[in-house]
Simulated assay, not measured.
Amino acid sequence: MRNILIVCIGNICRSPMAEGLVKAALPDRQVTSAGLGALVGQGADPIACALMKERGLSIDAHRAQQIQSDMCRRADLILVMDGGQRREIEQRYPFALGRVFRLCERSGQDVPDPYRAGDSAFRTSFALIENGAQQWVQRISRVSS
């Protein structure tokens, strides 16, 4: 798994945080993020940036981008935040079937969208993102060893 795509809706909250965590843990991989309804060109949410800084990581340079067919074609693995996003990607890009999974697949949880919901909602989502990212990093590392 060399190319990993992480997807949410706006590409300014959840997927940039997940991208930053996975990229830091797997620096030899191509890790990108995009949104199904991206706020194209917008930076990551300030609360998301602050949470990442608490972990010693910066997503300040992030700019939201819209998911596109070529991104899905290149991706060996596409991680989404919830089942609805998984279904939408599989409907839009049927060739991606079998490569789309929820970030928190193992725990069976969806990552709620914290957009405009305040610090507490971001912290709740971030905890799920961090846990899901760690599980995928471990799995990818085992498969690649």
Results as ranks from 00 to 15, higher is better:
E130K: 04
D110M: 00
D70W: 10
S141Q: 15
P112G: 09
Q85F: 04
D82E: 15
A38W: 07
I6K: 03
L21P: 11
D28G: 11
C49N: 04
E130I: 00
H62I: 02
V137H: 07
M81T: 00
R87E: 15
S107R: 14
E130T: 00
T32V: 15
Q85V: 02
R29K: 15
G84A: 10
A64D: 12
A64R: 09
G43I: 04
K53W: 00
D60H: 09
D28Q: 13
R106N: 10
S145L: 10
A25H: 03
R116V: 04
A48V: 06
R63G: 11
T124C: 02
D113Q: 06
S120M: 04
A48Y: 02
A127G: 11
G10F: 00
G37V: 01
L128Q: 09
A75E: 13
S107L: 02
S120N: 08
F101H: 15
D76E: 14
G56A: 11
R99V: 12
D119P: 00
R86A: 09
P114V: 02
L36W: 12
R123C: 08
Q66F: 14
V31K: 11
P27V: 05
L77H: 07
S15I: 05
R86F: 01
G35E: 04
S69L: 08
R55K: 15
